[in-house]
């Protein structure tokens, strides 16, 4: 397939997914919303995890900040979730900045960076579940309002479908822009060999911090979307460790650091984990995580780098 064919196929795929909800039932629409929503999160995580090569195990922190900021602003101040979404993103970025500066300044890499980010997310979860203002461990219900765009609430699933879809496409554009920008070349050199990159004058800490803040900013938006879609948030589902795992699993399986890998990962893993949840029922809640674990081990041993690069390699070698 030439590049031209791929472009045509891409445009066709975009059009097919626009028309899709007109032909399928609402359960499929729900699955699609989750696919796009996790596709978006995967792309956002991929900026720090893939482009910069720093495995963050704590993105639930920013997802949670997004969900809690917009919800609290809606409940306490009556401000539209759209504005809350933006402010949540800014708060996430403001919180990510000192975290990034500290962990990169002290040269935390690999497993130490991963666990440090996990610790920050867990501290946030514990605080949120202890403070009464944020609803404690019982969580917060989003008040039911009139179905409208200002309120970010709809009776039908269709608006959510298109919001999630457009968010994913925009996120893909952002990632494309980053990949083409100079930032990506700096990040790539840091990821390949940080000492060598520093030796030729690349400010590794600066670019890693930028990647972390950008990733946090965009991750946060989806927290708001999640809150408005499910109409309920609680510490255990919005900012606990399984949420972080959900965010990082798809890009790793699809193709770490590639543009479309995270999306592919979401298209594979999201329906799979939903089907598993449906089949085994709510009594055995950990089964989808078990499947993630098996996938992770298989990917690490047989196709390190993820499914997309693996497919690309096998097409090339033919």
């Amino acid at each position: 397939m030439s590049e031209k064919h791929l472009k045509v196929a891409g445009v066709l795929a975009i059009l097919v997914f626009i028309a899709l909800p007109l032909f399928v039932n609402s359960y499929i629409v729900h699955i699609c919303i989750l696919i796009y929503s996790f596709g978006y999160l995967s792309c956002a995580w991929n900026i720090i995890g893939g482009f910069a090569g720093q495995l963050s195990l704590g993105h639930a922190l920013f997802f949670g900040i997004g969900a809690y900021t917009s919800t609290l602003m809606l409940i306490r101040l009556g401000i539209s979730p759209w504005i809350g979404m933006l402010i949540g993103g800014l708060i996430s970025a403001i919180i990510a900045l000192p975290i990034g500066i500290i962990v990169f300044r002290y040269k935390l890499r690999g497993v130490f960076f991963a666990i440090a980010t996990l610790c920050f997310a867990e501290i946030f979860r514990i605080l949120v579940s202890q403070i009464r203002f944020t609803g404690g461990s019982e969580g917060l219900l989003i008040p039911i309002m009139e179905s409208s765009w200002i309120n970010f609430q709809f009776e039908s699933k269709l608006p959510y479908y298109y919001i999630a879809y457009i968010m994913m496409l925009l996120m893909l554009l952002v990632c494309y822009a980053i990949k083409k920008a100079k930032l990506n070349y700096y990040l790539f050199s840091v990821k390949a060999d940080e000492d060598a990159a520093s030796a030729i004058g690349v400010d590794a800490n600066k670019y890693k911090t930028i990647a972390y803040v950008v990733s946090a900013f965009f991750t946060s938006f989806n927290g708001t979307f999640f809150a408005q879609y499910y109409m309920f948030i609680e510490p255990e589902t919005t900012c606990a460790i399984p949420t972080s795992i959900d965010i990082l699993m798809r890009p790793i399986i699809g193709g770490l650091g590639t543009l479309f890998g995270p999306i592919l990962g979401s298209f594979i893993m999201t329906p799979l984990s939903e089907v598993i949840r449906k089949v085994v029922g709510s009594g055995m809640s950990g089964v989808h995580l078990l499947v993630y674990g098996v996938f992770l081990i298989v990917i690490c041993i047989w196709m390190p780098g993820g499914i997309l690069p693996y497919i690309a390699r096998s097409i090339k070698s033919k």
Binding site: G110, V111, A114, L256, L289, L290, G293, V294, L296, C300
Partner: peptide
């Protein structure tokens, strides 16, 4: 690479935890 090793042992965490849960 170290990343792969971390991810593999992290996969083990998920497998063991959820097998135990099951």
């Amino acid at each position: 690479p170290e990343d792969i090793q971390i991810l593999l042992t992290f996969g083990l965490v998920l497998v063991f935890q959820n097998l135990a849960l099951l």
